[in-house]
Simulated assay, not measured.
Amino acid sequence: MEFGPQTPARAISECGAAVALPAIMEQSVGERRKLLGRDGWTAMHHHHNRRDDRAAALAAKDITEGSACARTGLATCVFTYERLDAGLKVFTSGEADNPIASGYRTCRAIPPR
């Protein structure tokens, strides 16, 4: 996972590391965004191309943290967030306009020595 401009220069990451998170499972995008925001996380904004119709439709509703959606008919999407010390990918499922979190993966920044 790549980290944004807040990440220290030359930082590397350790994925699967324990990173404290609020209770985001089974939360909609809007509720998840609020919970994560209170904990210092920000949504990473992605520029969408027309090849990913689902992510582009979400972006049109100002849900720009959706980075990719599978074309399986199950609407599995990946939403990305960052904090000074970590990155987060949240996986969703369902066709709803406000997809529900079904899993996540964290990566923690390790500053250079």
Rank of each mutant, 00 (worst) to 15 (best):
G4E: 12
G4Y: 04
P5C: 00
P5S: 04
Q6P: 08
P8F: 11
A11H: 15
E14S: 08
E14M: 09
E14A: 11
G16R: 08
A17E: 10
A17N: 09
L21G: 06
P22K: 11
A23Q: 15
A23D: 15
I24G: 01
S28N: 05
E31Y: 04
E31C: 04
R33E: 15
R33D: 15
R33H: 14
K34E: 15
L35P: 05
L36N: 03
R38T: 06
R38D: 12
G40N: 10
G40H: 07
G40R: 09
G40Y: 12
W41K: 10
T42I: 11
A43N: 01
N49R: 05
N49V: 06
R50H: 10
R51V: 02
D53R: 12
D53C: 05
D53G: 08
A56Q: 06
A57L: 05
A57N: 06
A59P: 09
A60F: 08
D62Q: 03
D62Y: 02
T64M: 09
E65G: 05
E65H: 09
A68N: 05
A70L: 09
R71S: 08
T72D: 15
T76H: 15
T76A: 14
V78M: 14
R83M: 10
L88A: 15
T92Q: 04
T92D: 07
T92C: 08
S93M: 08
A96E: 10
D97C: 03
D97I: 02
D97N: 07
N98A: 03
P99K: 09
I100F: 03
I100V: 14
A101Y: 04
A101W: 04
S102E: 11
R105H: 10
C107M: 05
R108I: 00
R108A: 01
R108K: 05
A109M: 02
R113M: 02
R113L: 03
